[in-house]
Amino acid sequence: MGTSDKQQRQAVRAAAGLAGGAALCALLAAASTQHWPVLLSVGLLAGAVGVYRRAVAGQAYSYWAAWAAAPVMTLLLLWAQPPSMYEAARLLALPWAAVSALVAAVLFALWHSRRDGHLDWLVEHPDQGVLRREPTRRAALAWARYHYGQPCRIFRLDLAPQMAEQTPMYPYADRPMLRRQTDEAKERPQ
């Protein structure tokens, strides 16, 4: 297990803790007549979304969590409105909550379908094989155009499932032009 896996699990645990704290504050507000726990709950939920987004950075459609938190935060803020502003706020907040919940459901379905990587995009050179594997077509095109700079082919992985097991020549996301060391290069004396 790499350090990034450990950091990712820790960030997901921290996001879950913040979301749990938000739920606890919302329960505290429901049990009392105070509205400050609602505002604290919204802040904790926003923090949980931020930490979660950092944990899943680079995954396609991972921003579904922000869209899912938006209707919850909207309804919490509507709950905290003073009675004089409640009707006006409700006219704006309820349609926004419905639209953002619908967008969140669509994005979650897209994110869930791409988690295992079977819809990734490959960048391939006819002579060199698979150069790069990216989660979106846009990212594959950007890498081919701005980093590789030579003519190559871009296609979805599900169109060529036999290439799923091939390790790309440039696999590192944080260093796009760092080549992986091949077995032949390892065996050569230096």
Rank of each mutant, 00 (worst) to 15 (best):
G129Y: 06
Q166K: 15
E134C: 15
P83A: 15
G58P: 03
M85P: 00
M177S: 07
Y148H: 08
G149L: 08
Q190H: 13
L159P: 00
T182W: 05
H118K: 13
R54T: 03
H147K: 12
V42M: 08
R138W: 06
L102Q: 12
L40M: 08
D158G: 01
T136N: 05
A70W: 05
P83F: 07
S62M: 03
L122A: 02
T74M: 11
W36L: 06
A11T: 04
A97G: 14
W96S: 14
P135T: 09
W96V: 14
P161N: 07
L24W: 03
M169D: 06
A66K: 06
A55S: 13
A29K: 02
A57Q: 10
C152N: 03
Q59K: 12
F155K: 10
D183S: 15
L159G: 03
A139V: 01
L92F: 06
P82Y: 04
S4P: 00
L27C: 09
W111C: 11
G50D: 08
Q34C: 04
D116I: 00
P161W: 04
Q190M: 10
Q34F: 02
V38F: 08
Q166Y: 05
D120Y: 01
Q7C: 14
A144C: 07
A101S: 14
A23F: 13
G20T: 10
L157Y: 01
Y148R: 06
A105E: 05
L159A: 10
A80N: 10
R13Q: 11
V103H: 03
A48C: 07
L94G: 01
Q150R: 15
M163A: 13
W79S: 11
E87N: 10
R53C: 09
A69N: 05
A89S: 11
A68Q: 13
